[in-house]
């Protein structure tokens, strides 16, 4: 198991180096840092001096190594847009996106799993059929559309919830959390529901189809023959067996949650990384774009690693192969 985890960590480092290469290529070939720093009116001599100072004349590999070295220390240079260190801006925005994504995933699991269990155990009941039809809508509606509908309904017509923003935040060290204030909680509700809807329906459908299959297995039949209660059979025996696919899909879907967060953050003017990225895109703020790329990849890689480790926790058959 230790060996497996180490090999996965090495793989993850490989992935991050490759992502770093793309981010570095962005820096070097898309924008011209000298132009950005000196402006178009600077003399040729000044430009040449700055190029040498910045090390832009060094061989490619040396520059790449330097970029990675800085990135590891969190140094992505200055934002063109804000003229502040990129890392500071990212650190300000990261908590908003992290909280939004985590609350969305949590909601998706919290609602999707019980609905899926119910629909799997009682496939013929009218409630299950309702879940299935509603989930079809959930899968097919685009995120920005659900977001706007929710805003119109709950913020404009009913006036229960704020239409945009993050509400009041509380600082925990450098981490700003919206989860500890009433207005923060009210603010996160609509965007997180919007963001989780797709995952929720996906998880519900997944759990349902797994359940349908698992309740037909021999070990469930034998569990019934042993006289176990329905609760033990469904929530202990069957549910645990649906967990492996649910973990896989949830892990994979974290990626699309972060991707869709860009849209949700734009619709709700949520001050997170996604909104930052969209603004950076409009401004041609390459250091911010590069940092976003690296951060998002880092999250992907970390989540994948975490999912791999979770498999071992859930399935003993995997554990024995590696101990």
């Amino acid at each position: 198991m230790i060996r497996f985890i180490i090999s996965r960590i090495l793989q993850s480092i490989g992935v991050m180096l490759a992502v770093g290469l793309i981010a570095f290529a962005l820096f070097t070939y898309v924008g011209d840092p000298v132009n950005n720093m000196l402006g178009p009116s600077a003399s040729t001599d000044d430009r040449a001096r700055l190029r040498t100072e910045l090390g832009l004349d060094d061989p490619f590999l040396v520059q790449y190594a330097r970029f990675i070295g800085r990135a590891v220390q969190g140094d992505f240079g200055l934002s063109y847009q804000y003229a502040r260190p990129v890392i500071d801006i990212v650190a300000e925005r990261l908590p908003a996106t992290a909280e939004l994504s985590l609350v969305a995933v949590f909601l998706a699991l919290l609602v999707g799993i019980p609905m899926g269990i119910y629909a799997g155990i009682r496939p013929r009941s009218w409630l299950s059929k309702l879940f299935m039809s509603v989930s079809l809508i959930g899968v097919s509606l685009p995120t920005f559309f659900t977001g706007i509908v929710l805003i119109v309904l709950f913020a404009i017509v009913l006036r229960w919830l704020p239409p945009f923003g993050r509400g009041d935040v509380v600082m925990l060290g450098w981490w700003s959390t919206g989860l500890l204030s009433w207005s923060g909680l009210k603010s996160i509700l609509l965007p997180s529901v919007t963001l989780s809807l797709f995952q929720m329906t996906l998880i519900m459908r997944l759990v349902r189809s797994e359940m349908l299959e698992i309740v037909r297995t021999d070990y469930i039949r034998f569990a019934q023959a042993r006289g176990l209660t329905s609760r033990a059979i469904y929530f202990r025996h069957a549910l645990k067996n649906t967990l492996v696919p649910v973990i896989t899909i949830t892990g994979l879907q974290m990626g699309s949650i972060i991707a869709f967060a860009v849209i949700t953050e734009t619709v709700f003017q949520w001050p997170g990384l996604g909104l930052l990225f969209i603004q950076a895109l409009n401004f041609g703020d390459i250091p911010v774009m590069a940092a976003y790329l690296v951060f998002v990849s880092l999250m992907f890689v970390a989540i994948n690693l975490f999912v791999d480790i979770l498999y071992f926790v859930v399935d003993p058959r995997l554990r024995s192969g590696w101990t």
Binding site: T217, G227, N241, P316
Partner: peptide, 26 residues
């Protein structure tokens, strides 16, 4: 629900395939 109280306590069953009769995760 009533039959459940009979199963296991008064009448049990053994099936054909022991490889699949046990839950692999417990």
């Amino acid at each position: 629900a009533e039959m459940r109280k009979v199963r296991g306590r008064i009448a049990g069953a053994i099936f054909q395939d022991p490889m699949t009769s046990l839950n692999p995760l417990f």
